[in-house]
């Protein structure tokens, strides 16, 4: 069980690393928002799932630990609703504030 938890956490960390690199390297705001919005959601889900599994295993599946695991599940659910909404809100703000998006033609000229 601990091994599964470790694998999940490592996967989550890898996706987080991808997010960071994406945010640093991608050329314009909109594509950075792609990296931030997606990889963030999945890696949070993976890391918190891993932590929940490890905690359940660590405390020998007693009743109080299920309570904590449910709370972790609640975090996952709220991140699942909130993160795309935040991405959408930021994108909407950018497009109404008039951020220009990068394109190949503009780069060449």
């Amino acid at each position: 069980m601990t091994l599964i938890a470790i694998i999940l956490i490592i996967l989550g960390l890898f996706f987080f690393f991808g997010t960071s690199i994406g945010i640093l390297r991608l050329p314009d705001f909109y594509s950075r928002a792609h990296a931030a919005g997606k990889a963030d959601t999945l890696s949070t889900i993976l890391i918190i799932l891993g932590c929940a599994l490890y905690y359940l295993d660590y405390s020998h599946y007693d009743l109080a630990s299920f309570n904590v695991a449910f709370k972790l599940f609640v975090i996952i659910a709220f991140v699942f609703i909130g993160s795309p909404t935040a991405t959408h809100a930021i994108m909407d703000a950018a497009s109404s504030a008039g951020v220009e998006h990068w394109s190949k033609d503009k780069d060449k000229s």
């Binding site: 991808g18 991608l26 594509s31 890696s43 998006h101």
Partner: peptide, 19 residues
């Protein structure tokens, strides 16, 4: 996620996207 990470880790980023 795999799609986004493939793009952000690819060596020449500007050739594989067209926003």
């Amino acid at each position: 996620n795999i799609h986004v990470i493939k793009i952000s880790l690819s060596p020449n980023i500007e050739s594989c996207i067209n926003p």
